[in-house]
């Protein structure tokens, strides 16, 4: 369940609140970028940017605010340098066995499937499905209306369903009226 945004206006404790959010922000970045090193680079940029904007933060969901900063940074990175586009570790040479720990097989498999989703769908899917943001929080983080979040979520989930089923079955995007 989403944690409620803590209402602290004291810069020091706000910073402590930000530190407490780092693990979740890292998890999201890891799933978003498909790469541990790039994810931490993105998290670092996000934290640095957030600290320069503490004065702009308004009580609400601190996580949604951090995710919105990350979203803007990531979009700009992709725009500025196309070569930064999503590149899961499969680009790396085939090596006998992959690293254990946080880089489980399941994570690697998901990295590959998520890479098949357009960025805007991947973001919504992860913010809602992994980070458990409310639809309104996800909309705020991405700067789009809630209706857009819902339609992206439908496309992302149906596409991922097809991919997880091996991509063999046809796409079913029947919209419920």
């Amino acid at each position: 369940m989403p944690r409620k945004g803590r209402r602290s206006l004291h810069p020091l404790s706000l910073r402590q609140d930000i530190v407490a959010e780092i693990p979740g922000v890292r998890r999201y970045a890891r799933a978003l970028t498909g790469d541990a090193g790039r994810a931490d680079d993105l998290v670092q940029d996000t934290l640095e940017r957030a600290l320069t904007r503490l004065a702009l933060w308004r009580p609400g969901s601190l996580r949604a605010w951090l995710f919105s900063i990350m979203h803007n940074l990531y979009i700009n990175q992709l725009r500025d340098a196309r070569r930064l586009e999503y590149a899961p570790d499969e680009d790396l040479p085939e090596l006998p066995v992959r690293a254990a720990q946080s880089d489980g097989l399941e994570m690697r498999d998901l990295d590959r499937l998520l890479a098949c989703l357009p960025l805007e769908q991947r973001e919504v899917l992860l913010l809602v499905g992994l980070e458990e943001l409310s639809y309104a929080e996800a909309a705020r983080a991405l700067g789009v209306p809630v209706g857009t979040v819902m339609s992206r979520l439908s496309r992302a989930r149906d596409r991922l369903r097809t991919l997880m089923a091996g991509g063999a079955e046809g796409v079913h995007l029947r919209v419920v009226k």
Partner: peptide
Amino acid sequence: RAYGAVLEEPVPARLLEAAR
């Protein structure tokens, strides 16, 4: 399940540094 392990990892020092 797949990405949960990231939560268990120690936060890299450079990120703590970035927040401080």
